[in-house]
Design a protein around this nucleic acid. Structure first.
Lengths: 112, 112
DNA sequence: ACGAGTCATTGACATCCATCGATGTATCGG
DNA sequence: CCGATACATCGATGGATGTCAATGACTCGT
């Protein structure tokens, strides 16, 4: 996990809620970055595939998504920067795993 | 509620889930549009203020957000197009209310 | 050491988007 | 009516973003 990702997680420890109290500026920026990562159909399908399996290799995302390799790499980076997935390089491959805690933090922010 | 908003709701009746099954293209596009509406700090703070009260007038959003009137109008339209808020015009004012069902649909799409 | 496979980065391009001034539309009070 | 208020729309502008070809970096068989 990159320093950037750790910073994001640390800045949003647990419980910023959109629906409960008036959100302050910083909380809004943090949450908006998280939702921005979900605001693309390609990334949503990516996250969907990764979360459905334990581990998914980047090479297994190309064909189902129908996108070029740099595009897939760009989107995995976006999801990783948002802390929603983490990648582990083993040999030639990078295996991606979902980060349920981070996904759950966004989900809880929409909880009444 | 506009025809466009009704169409969105109808196209996503209840249970598209990001984490359960591999998302198909159409579901991904619908969900991405919803999350895109949340992917802006100004709109998140807007939704936060509107959800915290029963009704909020557009004029009461200008000063707390520190944005010009056309900008606020632009964002309320974005949230309304996404079905997250609905507006009712009474006299000179437009009163906005949150749409919990629509917000909840997005929240549930992130539920394991 | 060489070639093939996997992924990241760069650069370029088109598109989308947030923002705001100017203007238009509607409503109310006087 | 007329001026003021609330909101929407238009047009312009600067910045962010999705996409991919080309290239680079790294790993593994042979």
């Amino acid at each position: 996990m990159t320093q950037k990702q750790i910073a994001v997680l640390a800045a949003e420890p647990c419980c910023a809620s959109v629906l409960a109290a008036p959100l302050d500026e910083d909380e809004a920026v943090q949450l908006a970055q998280g939702f921005a990562a979900l605001a693309d159909p390609v990334r949503l399908r990516m996250l969907s595939m990764i979360a459905a399996s334990d581990e998914v290799c980047s090479c297994d995302l190309l064909e189902p998504l129908g996108k070029a390799q740099p595009t897939v790499s760009h989107h995995t980076k976006a999801l990783a920067d948002a802390g929603l997935i983490v990648g582990e390089k083993r040999g030639r491959w990078v295996f991606w795993r979902a980060v349920p805690e981070r996904i759950d933090a966004l989900r809880r922010s929409l909880t009444p």
